[in-house]
Computed example of a mutant assay.
Amino acid sequence: MLRTGRHDPTTRLARGELWKASRTPDGPGTVHLSYRQPAVTATGYGPGAGWLLERADALAGLRDDPAGFLPLARQHPVVAVLADGMPGLRLARTERVFDELVRVVLAQKVTTIEATRSYAALVRRFGEPAPGPVPLLLPPAAETIAAAPYWMFHPLGIEQRRADTLRRLAAVADRLECTVHEPPDQARRLLMTRPGVGPWTAAEVAAVAYGDPDAVSVGDYHVPHQVAYALAGEQRGTDQRMLELLAPFGGHRARVIRLVVHAGVQEPRRAPRAALRSFARF
């Protein structure tokens, strides 16, 4: 959830460690998390190092509170098995709302491969070298995105609808960052007042930027089928059916979805994969 594809220029993830470059209110920075049982060690680089280190425990998921989830999980045989099999699963919180919005908006109405390719191309086009010993790039600055004309996005495989959404959100990025101080449900509602941000986009952002344990991505192409297949053995699912199955886990619905996704539960495929497109060629 903290990396946009295997070739994300802003993030490096390996066994037991994470490198992540970010733009913070104090300036650019890179944080390195290293896990050696029983401790997580955080190291920061650049002007934003202090800001990142103050929130390193949240990035590692250590502010996530799963209290109350296990009694709910025990009520469902599949969820109980998943929870027992992944007892260390925690929900990260980045507190970088615009960065997550960029990632999620690029995933609207396209395949995952298309979205990750466009994100990597966008970072390489508008990003800058991040501080620290690892060669990473910073996410694009909001002011850079807001000022860029559409024709600069088109060669990156981003059509005008998503490009315009990004530019509108970039123009109010400072106000969007303030939503991290709101309760997650209120923050989601505030995000959805912006054109181009619907329930799916708001939930995807909330799950990572706010570490929201109850965010449900209504409108997702795969998740309703995965949840229906995992929890009820049904090969296809709808948003309504997904919400019905998740209702007993209120307050922890995102946690159940994360368990299902991390376990690799996948509904049987009924059609060929969607064809990959390249808006850059249009």
Results as ranks from 00 to 15, higher is better:
Arg6Gln: 12
Pro9Leu: 00
Thr10Cys: 12
Thr10Ala: 06
Thr11Tyr: 01
Arg15Trp: 12
Arg15Glu: 15
Arg15Ser: 15
Gly16Pro: 05
Glu17His: 14
Lys20Pro: 01
Ala21Gly: 02
Ser22Thr: 10
Arg23Ile: 07
Pro25Asp: 11
Pro25Ile: 12
Asp26Cys: 14
Gly27Asp: 08
Gly27Leu: 06
Pro28Arg: 01
Leu33Pro: 02
Tyr35Thr: 10
Val40Phe: 09
Thr41Arg: 14
Thr41Val: 15
Ala42Pro: 07
Gly44Tyr: 07
Tyr45Phe: 14
Tyr45Thr: 09
Ala49Asn: 08
Ala49Arg: 05
Trp51Lys: 07
Leu52Thr: 02
Glu54Tyr: 03
Asp57Ser: 15
Leu59Cys: 14
Arg63Leu: 13
Asp65Gly: 10
Gly68Ala: 14
Pro71Glu: 06
Leu72Gln: 09
Ala73Pro: 05
Arg74Tyr: 04
His76Met: 10
Pro77Asp: 07
Val78Gln: 11
Val79Glu: 03
Val81Gln: 15
Val81His: 11
Leu82Asn: 03
Met86Gly: 11
Arg90Thr: 10
Arg93Thr: 13
Thr94Cys: 11
Thr94His: 09
Glu95Phe: 05
Phe98Ile: 02
Glu100Ile: 01
Leu101Ile: 10
Leu101Ser: 01
Arg103Asn: 01
Val105Met: 03
Val105His: 03
Leu106Thr: 00
Leu106Cys: 03
Lys109Thr: 09
Lys109His: 11
Lys109Tyr: 06
Ile113Pro: 00
Ile113Phe: 05
Ala115Thr: 04
Arg117Thr: 08
Ser118Asn: 05
Val123Pro: 00
Arg124Leu: 07
Gly127Tyr: 00
Pro129Phe: 04
Ala130Asp: 03
Ala130His: 02
Gly132Cys: 04
Pro133Met: 13
Val134Lys: 14
Val134Asp: 14
Pro135Asn: 13
Leu136Ala: 10
Leu137Arg: 00
Leu138Trp: 00
Pro140Lys: 02
Ala141Cys: 13
Ala142Leu: 05
Ala142Asn: 01
Thr144Met: 07
Ile145Asp: 00
Ile145Phe: 07
Ala147Gly: 14
Ala147Glu: 11
Ala148Trp: 02
His154Gly: 12
His154Ala: 15
Leu156Phe: 00
Leu156Thr: 01
Arg162Val: 04
Ala163Asp: 03
Leu166Gly: 08
Arg167Pro: 04
Arg167Asn: 08
Arg168Cys: 03
Ala171Gln: 09
Ala171Ser: 13
Ala173Gly: 14
Asp174Val: 15
His181Glu: 09
Asp185Val: 15
Asp185Ser: 15
Leu191Lys: 02
Arg194Ser: 07
Gly196Cys: 08
Val197Glu: 01
Pro199Thr: 15
Thr201Glu: 07
Thr201Asp: 07
Glu204Ser: 13
Val208Cys: 05
Gly211Arg: 03
Asp212Asn: 12
Asp212Lys: 06
Pro213Asn: 11
Ala215Ser: 09
Val218Met: 07
Tyr221Gly: 03
Val223Gly: 00
Val227Ala: 02
Val227Ile: 14
Ala228Ser: 15
Tyr229Asp: 13
Leu231Arg: 04
Thr238Arg: 13
Gln240Tyr: 06
Gln240Glu: 12
Arg241Asp: 15
Met242Lys: 04
Met242His: 03
Leu243Arg: 14
Pro248Trp: 06
Gly250Met: 11
Arg255Leu: 08
Val256Met: 06
Ile257Asp: 01
Val260Asp: 06
Ala263Thr: 07
Gln266His: 09
Arg269Thr: 14
Leu276Ala: 13
Arg281Val: 03
